[in-house]
């Protein structure tokens, strides 16, 4: 199944994400976004030039910053939104969505 993604071209309201890609993701691993998963996620995000944000309710985190990700304190089952803008935004979101599904490589 393709990730739940859409190209954000929904008019004036989201002008700031004109070239952006958005996707819903879910934290599947048991520990949630604890130190090791957060580190791995940031490492993966750093492979892309796009600006990648993780949004949880009101909170927003830079997906390349382990510290930022940690502050979301996202537990197992927590739904988040990935927002990427920039050259490789599409690839980044696809890659990271897949990475969420693989539980960040965690066993459980």
């Amino acid at each position: 199944m393709k990730p739940n993604e859409r190209t954000a071209s929904r008019g004036d309201l989201e002008e700031d994400v004109v070239s952006g890609v958005v996707a819903e993701v879910c934290v599947l691993n048991e520990q949630g976004l604890h130190a090791r998963p957060a580190a791995k996620l940031a490492q993966e995000a750093q492979k892309f030039v796009a600006d990648i944000q993780l949004v949880s309710g009101d909170a927003q985190a830079d997906c390349k910053s382990i510290l930022d990700i940690l502050t979301l304190a996202a537990a197992q089952g927590c739904g988040l939104e990935l927002r990427a803008t920039g050259a490789d935004a599409q690839e980044a979101v696809e890659h990271l969505t897949e990475f969420f599904k693989r539980r960040f490589g965690e066993k459980r």
Binding site: A35, R36, A39, A42, Q43, Q46, D62, K64, S65, I66, L67, D68
Partner: peptide, 13 residues
């Protein structure tokens, strides 16, 4: 050490 390296590289710091 890995996680400390990550923090060192973190834009937030």
């Amino acid at each position: 050490i890995d996680s400390h390296l990550m923090i060192l590289a973190d834009p937030k710091l």
